[in-house]
């Protein structure tokens, strides 16, 4: 359902049209915040990026990527390249390798996300057939001193967030369970 709100676009009156009064009102707002911040009473801004305002608790917004892990700590990612294929910003770079013994066979030898190119669209999460990549860390990327800091490698991405429970993906079933020892 689309909600419709009617806006009453009344014409400006004389005082508004000469702008002087409105400019003074605007300056008053700016000055009030300036002095409030200066005197440290009710600060509205934080010295970003050293301090950050936490994201709303249960917000569904897309935040920094992470790679989910199996219970043994290995990445659930099987290096299928679907996220790299779906990525419109081409910020994901994967190199595949082969497990010698594990029946899942394929894993990412390297997996990097270049946050300086990422547009936070979430297509990688949509594309993943293994539910291995998520954008739910609650960390908002940005404010880095160098481009290199914005490049997340496999270890950065595998960092767990508190309260995460490991789960099983389709091909990962092979790694565990009765069919695992083959």
């Amino acid at each position: 359902m689309i909600s419709v709100r009617k806006v009453n676009n009344r014409p400006l009156n004389f005082l508004e049209r000469i702008y002087l009064v409105e400019i003074a009102r605007g300056l008053a707002v700016t000055a009030r915040h300036f002095f409030a911040n200066l005197l440290g009473r009710r600060s509205l801004t934080v010295p970003y990026p050293e301090r950050r305002i936490p994201a709303a608790g249960n917000s569904a917004s897309r935040t920094r990527h992470r790679l989910k892990a199996r219970p043994d700590g290995s990445p659930r990612c099987v290096a299928c390249f679907l996220c790299q294929t779906a990525c419109p910003a081409r910020c994901i770079a994967i190199e595949a390798a082969e497990y010698p013994g594990n029946p899942v066979e394929k894993y990412p030898a390297s997996f990097s996300v270049d946050l300086s190119r990422c547009v936070m669209c979430g297509m990688c999460v949509e594309a993943c057939p293994e539910d291995a990549i998520a954008m739910d860390t609650g960390e908002l990327p940005g404010g880095a001193a160098s481009r290199q800091e914005l490049r997340l490698d496999k270890e950065d991405l595998l960092r767990r967030v508190p309260g995460e429970t490991p789960a099983r993906g389709a091909a990962n079933r092979l790694a565990e369970g009765p069919g695992g020892e083959r």
Binding site: V78, C80, E105, K106, P129, A171
Partner: peptide, 11 residues
């Protein structure tokens, strides 16, 4: 048929 498409080279 296994659900191997993500790790299968033929995909």
């Amino acid at each position: 048929h296994p659900l191997d498409c993500p790790i299968c080279d033929q995909a």
